[in-house]
Nucleic acid binder design. Structure first.
Lengths: 133, 133
DNA sequence: GTGGTGTTCAACCGAACGGTTGACAAAGCA
DNA sequence: TGCTTTGTCAACCGTTCGGTTGAACACCAC
């Protein structure tokens, strides 16, 4: 909660502030390299160097990308000797899906409601900002 | 591709490079303020100052946020005297939804396939990197 | 032990981000 | 004709981001 991390350091828990989960997931997937890794991980687990192979960047860069995927909960890592197999955690997708679907539905509802309003149309100026209490 | 923008500047088209559409949408929604704006816009169109009202930041900051939403195609703006009513373009949600659903499905398929493999289990090492040609 | 392999850590760098302030344009209102 | 409202543009500032290099750690194989 305060220092605790970055002193004993090495293990996890150097979260510091960490954005809300939804922001983390969205921003993790905002990078094409990271999206590509996720896509490949839907086919099979892979080690860091296997994941790094197709890209031109250094292994360290890939390792960093994996960290943000892990922090976002999209990916988990186990241990196999020196190797760190990466595994996709598809559940987190739901977080996004739910957010998106919720507001999409709300938007659609609103549009159909608006159709109604337009048909009704008394003499108000133009329903500009709508009926938001 | 080179200068061209930022010289004639003022009108649109200062795209410079502009990330791929999917990255733009994801990263636009990676900010909680922007997500909140989108959420509110599902209820009704709104002007810039109406949108800005609940937040502590300056109008200019809100204007910037709207720009990234607009560049991502999530939002469009019309004109009403000095006002610039903002309207949600819910279609772009589909871009994300499709990406997410595609890989979620792929991941699920893989897991069920893996169940099969485990039951079958010959003597191969472990199907590590799978069958990605 | 020594050496190789796989991965992470630490420091650094330039570009992008999220915010600020100040100036200004464009339209309505006195 | 001013003055106000609404919004954008431009410049700046500190922080984060995506990448680099170099060093270190952890583990296996001689």
């Amino acid at each position: 909660m305060f220092s605790t991390d970055r002193l004993n350091s090495n293990r996890k828990e150097r979260t510091i502030v960490s954005a809300d989960p939804l922001s983390q997931v969205f921003s993790a997937l905002a990078d094409p390299t990271r999206r590509d890794m996720v896509a490949r991980l839907t086919l099979a687990d892979a080690t860091v160097s296997e994941l790094a192979e197709p890209y031109e960047m250094s292994i360290q860069a890939v390792s960093k990308h994996l960290r943000v995927l892990e922090d976002a909960g999209l990916v988990s890592r186990s241990r196999d000797a020196q190797r760190r197999p990466v595994h996709l955690e598809a559940d987190v997708f739901d977080l996004m899906t739910k957010w998106i679907e919720r507001y999409r539905r709300q938007a659609e509802e609103r549009y159909s409601r608006l159709d109604g309003v337009l048909r009704w149309m008394p003499d108000k100026p133009n329903t500009r900002t709508g009926e938001e209490t």
